[in-house]
């Protein structure tokens, strides 16, 4: 569990004067930024002429868009000390909903913006369902979201049906994510807006602050008058909405409906949250840190591809990076009989 809960005995503190413990660097994330800079430099040297180009920058930003959007919801959930594994299922369900309600070659429906609204609503609803089961039936979020993941995949598979793959027929729609404004791909601009909103929510709204409070200690938060159950619902719904949005953008990038549109995003996002420095126990971290983690992992993947590393090895590399990052983050807290669960 989180080390926050331990309360130091008054005289157990080392003899260090107060000033020594005071300016504990609040500007964390320095390590992550340094790691990013090192990665960029290394890949730039290894791949002169291909890595540091505007085209490749656009590619990286376009690839980062989905995990950035999902990361906002995932961070808030993890800040509360819960976890959301349903990402890929919700993306599938929302993505299929969106494709079948937009101009496509399967049916004659074209709700335009309405398709977007309904798809996001599907995500919100799945998130709300998760939250209700978690808070009312007291089922751990790990289990509920594991179930909802497959429920979402099931919905997507049902919608996909037996017929041919439903392709989006509007070129304007399918090229939207990679089209650029001000030289930046739309998918990234959307992600940027979502991350900015997420950062504001976590800093300036009751929703965000209560997520921190619940993550620090649910019981104390409750005793302080935080309606814990209600805010958990909100956060899970919000996370569902983020996943849905990512599912829509992912479907646009594919240009077709696919139940597994979200594949690979769960690992990437949770890894990014942790590498960014948000504690899995809850209460510590932030949306911007996750964004940094996403960029770090995306640059790593992109650089490995450019450097000619086999895609088969890449997933192993990502896994190693995740474990090293977690071990490094916990390095300072190893002492004092702490037990990892």
């Amino acid at each position: 569990m989180s080390d926050l809960k331990a309360r130091p005995a008054p005289d157990a503190a080392p003899a260090a004067p107060a000033s020594a413990s005071r300016p504990r660097p609040r500007i964390r994330g320095v390590g992550e930024v340094a790691a990013l800079v090192v990665l960029v430099v290394v890949f730039a040297v290894l791949n002169p002429g291909t890595f540091l180009t505007l085209d490749n920058l656009r590619t990286v930003l376009d690839q980062a868009a989905l995990p950035l959007v999902i990361g906002v919801g995932a961070t808030l959930v993890i800040l509360m000390g819960s976890i959301d594994l349903s990402v890929e299922g919700v993306m599938g369900a929302a993505g299929m909903t969106f494709v079948l309600l937009s101009a496509n070659d399967r049916n004659g429906l074209d709700l335009g913006l309405g398709a977007f609204v309904v798809a996001v609503a599907v995500g919100l609803a799945l998130g709300l369902l998760t939250g209700l089961i978690h808070t009312l039936l007291k089922v751990p979020s790990f289990i509920v979201t594991l179930g909802v993941w497959y429920v979402g995949l099931g919905i997507a598979t049902l919608l996909f049906g037996q017929a041919a793959i439903p392709f989006l027929t509007s070129d304007g729609l399918t090229s939207w994510p990679s089209d650029t404004t001000l030289g930046l791909p739309h998918s990234f601009l959307l992600a940027f807006v979502v991350v900015a909103l997420g950062a504001l929510v976590s800093r300036f709204t009751r929703l965000g602050r209560y997520a921190f409070a619940i993550g620090a200690d649910e019981q104390i938060a409750q005793d302080n008058g935080v309606p814990v159950g209600r805010y958990k619902l909100y956060v899970f719904a919000l996370a569902g909405g983020c996943s849905a949005l990512a599912g829509i953008v992912g479907s646009l990038q594919l240009g077709a409906g696919a139940a597994n549109v979200g594949i690979g995003n769960l690992f990437l996002t949770i890894a990014a949250v942790v590498i960014g420095g948000t504690a899995l126990g809850g209460g510590k971290g932030g949306v911007l840190r996750t964004a940094l983690g996403v960029v770090l992992l995306t640059v790593l993947n992109n650089g490995l591809i450019l450097s000619g590393v086999s895609p088969n090895i890449q997933s192993a590399v990502s896994g190693v990076v995740l474990i090293v990052a977690i071990a490094a983050a916990g390095w300072a807290y190893r002492g004092r009989l702490r037990i990892a669960k």
Partner: peptide
Amino acid sequence: QSLLTNLSVAENLAMTAS
């Protein structure tokens, strides 16, 4: 102790006052 240790003093005070 019933303070949330990850939040600021002011926020802890505000939480009860909300």
